[in-house]
Simulated assay, not measured.
Amino acid sequence: MTEPRPISIVPSVLPADFSRLGEECVALAEAGVDRIQWDVMDGRFVPNLTFGPDVIASCRKHVDIPFEAHLMVLDPDELAGRYVDAGCEILIVHAETAPHLHRTLARVRELGASPAVALNPATPVAAVQHVLDLVDMVLVMTVNPGFGGQDYIATMEPKVAEVRALADAQGLTLDVEVDGGIGPSTIAGAVTAGANVLIAGSALYRDPEGLGHAVSDLRARAEAARAS
């Protein structure tokens, strides 16, 4: 079994105030998050429209922590370069949108970013088992993508465990990320299943004690679940 990857708490900025995204990024960095995720939606692969590269580039100068772009788009090959230029160090592409997944992931690496691949809840792990050597992270969606504030699909935990076991069997040191419905009541299950990168949106912003408390609380719960 490979050495466990560190726990990372990564916010989605979907619940943030879009009129002051630069300030919101600063607040998240000060709260102690490990990086920031931008949920890029094209209105085609998923219903909503969110962040173009110019918006992300305008926020890049405000913080030094890494950015990751979750490309929920039908044509990641066309857009990847623009999000790298905008300052995203990690690009996540969906297996469902890349018919030539090896080529797409290799292109992300060529652009100088860290490639990652995402799986919708109904997409089997088999869709990525032959590209694990090309990625630094696998994202297992624990909601159907396109909207924030959805309920965690607990039946995805065996899928998280399957990804982790497959990476271990291949001797690969990969991050396994989960995104969707992560909060105080669900984070332990995700970590116990094998996830180490936890995306949180609504749970961070609705904590009455503020972002700093929310981040610390989720990190403590994740570390406790790993240690148990």
Rank of each mutant, 00 (worst) to 15 (best):
V33C: 07
C25L: 08
A69E: 08
C25R: 00
T50Y: 04
P47M: 06
V55S: 07
A80D: 06
D39R: 03
V63G: 00
F18P: 13
C88W: 11
H62M: 05
R35A: 15
L49W: 03
G22V: 06
W38Q: 02
P76L: 14
K61H: 15
L49K: 00
G87N: 09
P47I: 05
D54P: 02
I65R: 00
R82T: 10
F67G: 10
A86N: 04
Y83I: 15
K61I: 07
C25A: 13
H62F: 05
G43C: 01
L49A: 06
F51H: 09
V33F: 05
V46G: 03
A27H: 06
V55E: 06
R60Q: 15
L79F: 15
K61M: 07
S58L: 00
L21W: 11
H62N: 04
G43F: 14
G43Q: 00
A29R: 08
A31N: 05
C25N: 15
L74Y: 09
R60G: 12
H70N: 12
F67E: 02
E68S: 08
E24C: 12
V40N: 10
A27D: 05
D42V: 03
I36E: 00
A29W: 09
R20K: 15
T50S: 14
E68W: 09
D54N: 07
V73D: 06
D54G: 04
D75R: 11
V46D: 10
D77W: 10
C59R: 00
L21C: 14
G87E: 01
A86E: 06
P53T: 10
A31Y: 07
D54W: 03
V55D: 08
V33L: 14
R20T: 11
C25I: 04
D42F: 10
D77M: 12
R82L: 10
L28A: 02
P76V: 11
Y83M: 14
E23F: 02
F45R: 01
P47S: 07
N48R: 00
I56L: 06
C88E: 00
E30H: 01
L49M: 14
G43I: 01
I65S: 01
V33W: 13
M72R: 04
D54I: 05
M72K: 13
C88G: 11
P76E: 09
M72N: 02
R82K: 12
L28E: 02
D77Y: 10
I65V: 03
M41H: 03
V46K: 11
F18C: 08
L49V: 13
R35V: 04
R44L: 09
P76C: 06
F45G: 11
F67P: 04
E23P: 10
V73M: 11
P53C: 12
A57W: 00
P47D: 08
F67M: 10
V84Y: 09
A57M: 03
V63A: 02
I65H: 02
L79I: 07
T50R: 00
I36L: 01
L28W: 03
Q37E: 12
W38K: 04
A57P: 03
H70I: 04
